[in-house]
Simulated assay, not measured.
Amino acid sequence: MGIFSGRRSQGALHYSTPSPGMRQALAEEMAKDRESASFLTAEANGYIYACCLRVVAQLGVADLLADGPVHVRHLAERVSADELALYRVLRLLATRGIVRETDSGVFVLMERGASLRSDSKFSVREGILAATTPAIYRAGGELLHALTTGEPAVNHVFGEPLFDYFASHPTEGAEFHTGMGQYSVIESANFVRECRLPETGTVVDVGGGQGSLLLMILQRHRGLHGVLFDLPHVIAHHRLGELEDSNRWTTVGGSFFDSLPAGDTYVIQYVLHNWDDPRCVEILRNCRRGLAPGGRVIIHDMIVPPGNEPDQSKVLDIVMLSIVTGRERTQHEFEQLLHAAGLRIVTITPPTLGALSTIEAEAL
């Protein structure tokens, strides 16, 4: 029976009046529902912040704010934007502390927005463009396909895997790869600063792209010889020539699913999360086969923490769900992969800067 209950007495219908306690309980229940509705609506609109970040990154607005406050009129003129539209975008970003409106129409770049500048030491301008490239957004919009089939949503959207799509759409591909390279450089600097590497021997950078990480390693550890391993068309654009001593490095083209050059240390950064478990085991087994006695396999990747607390790895994991067959993994899942490949974890170093943990493994 509800709060407002009725009963018949001698042919008449009488209603009982709710008590003050019942009215209070009803009001509290309605308040909770309103709060939930408000929260969920705001969450559903959260993508708009990323859209605003993308357009200010595209236009280079942060660079124009480098020297202090600027009126939106002048910003709009410099970037060929509509003044009112740009104002509305900056007004929203001001609610997140990225910029601040100091006077009517006048904006200043805040500390939180400093890495939007292209000249920032840890610039993420290009990384933001990669993370918000339309192909990624479209795949996210079709996430239901991934949930119902287990296949990347991007395959459903474009009829082909993500990297095949980027190969046939070079402008979008260049935006994505350049931005991902920017994130990789930042994490590489953290890796070189924090990871313990041997003083001598051969270090193989597995899937090392253009060699940013290996270059930093060789610059810091002058007794090491480096091998950059990736697909031939990728390493064709390597950066190792920036190292003065060309005798300290070698490039080898090939697929890490087939075989790997021999080495004392294998470094794998931002690679395993792109692939499903069987493919990861293939990569790690090839590391195990080429590993010198006493050598190490070092994985630099995100580890998903347990519990309900927010973490960047849990966000990126859903991105991976929509675009590739891989995922971000827990410590236990890494242990299983390594064991299947004949390896075991020796140490795990959580990130002090950046988002990637360092997993050191050795042969069983």
Rank of each mutant, 00 (worst) to 15 (best):
D311N: 15
R23Y: 05
R344A: 11
E328W: 01
P278V: 01
G159H: 03
G46A: 14
V324S: 14
V234Y: 09
G201Y: 03
D230F: 06
R8V: 14
H332S: 12
P134K: 13
V252W: 03
T41R: 08
C51S: 12
P170N: 06
V192F: 07
Q182I: 00
E175K: 07
V281S: 02
L364Y: 14
G60Y: 02
R239P: 00
A114F: 04
P198N: 00
R54I: 06
A130V: 09
G159V: 02
D311A: 14
A131M: 13
G141N: 12
L90W: 05
C280Y: 03
L40I: 14
T149I: 13
V281W: 03
D277Q: 07
G226V: 08
R296K: 13
L284V: 00
G141F: 03
E83C: 03
I3H: 15
Q210M: 08
L86I: 01
N308Q: 10
H71M: 00
L75G: 04
F163I: 04
F163L: 11
A37F: 13
A189S: 10
I303S: 04
M22T: 13
G295R: 09
V79F: 10
R285H: 11
Q336C: 11
T352Y: 04
I48E: 02
P69F: 06
V315K: 05
E360R: 15
V61I: 10
E29L: 14
L93Y: 05
V206G: 07
A66G: 00
T325M: 07
C280I: 02
Q219A: 10
R23W: 07
S36K: 14
G354M: 06
S80F: 12
K314A: 00
A85H: 10
R220L: 00
E142V: 13
S246G: 04
G354A: 11
H221L: 04
